[in-house]
């Protein structure tokens, strides 16, 4: 649990400037909370990493090949029947189900990975206790900076000087 200073900015440009200044000041911007994605923000915060797409690829491949294996095993090994004289291993049409199933698995695994890597679902969070944090889902661009051991008020002043509407303390 990190104690942070939360600064709310009226627009993303102000937030981005604040991030740069915070880093110049030697403080650590932990996270930012914005109503919509802001280009470059995650990179500026050093948080531009996610394994979600790798999970999706894995889920999709597993689903697809698993489905194909199911088809092949059932049609060739387990229940070889003559259907209209077609070959048992009718690969020409066996790719369809694996494709559909693979995409479905990629989507489901992706959604699960998104939630899991984001630590969701988590219905409550200490940040929600901070008054005004709800603006982050509407029109407030909130930056969370790790509260420095020394001179926290310098950081606060700096943030206020960077167009912050308010600065409050919180935990994250």
């Amino acid at each position: 649990m990190t104690r942070v200073l939360l600064a709310c900015f009226p627009h993303p440009e102000a937030l981005m400037i604040a991030v740069r200044r915070v880093k110049e000041e030697g403080a650590v911007p932990v996270d930012a909370f914005t109503p919509h994605p802001v280009d470059g923000l995650a990179e500026a915060l050093g948080a531009a990493r996610t394994p979600v797409r790798k999970w999706m690829l894995a889920g999709g491949l597993l689903g697809g090949f698993g489905a194909y294996f199911t088809e092949w095993f059932s049609a060739v090994i387990d229940l070889p029947i003559n259907a209209g004289g077609r070959p048992l291993h009718s690969w020409e049409v066996f790719y369809l189900f694996p494709f559909e199933f693979g995409v479905l698995m990629a989507g489901i695994v992706g959604a699960a990975a998104l939630l899991a890597t984001s630590g969701l679902p988590r219905l409550n969070h200490p940040l929600f206790d901070v008054q005004g944090f709800e603006r982050s889902s509407q029109d407030g661009f909130i930056l969370a900076v790790e509260q420095p051991e020394r001179h926290p008020e310098r950081l606060r002043d700096m943030l206020l000087a960077s167009e912050a509407l308010w600065v409050r303390e919180g935990k994250t």
Binding site: L79, G84, R86
Partner: peptide, 15 residues
């Protein structure tokens, strides 16, 4: 080469 067989989804129509 029965057209009815491969279209049956549940293998009710087989040779």
């Amino acid at each position: 080469h029965a057209p009815c067989e491969p279209v049956c989804p549940v293998e009710a129509s087989v040779h």
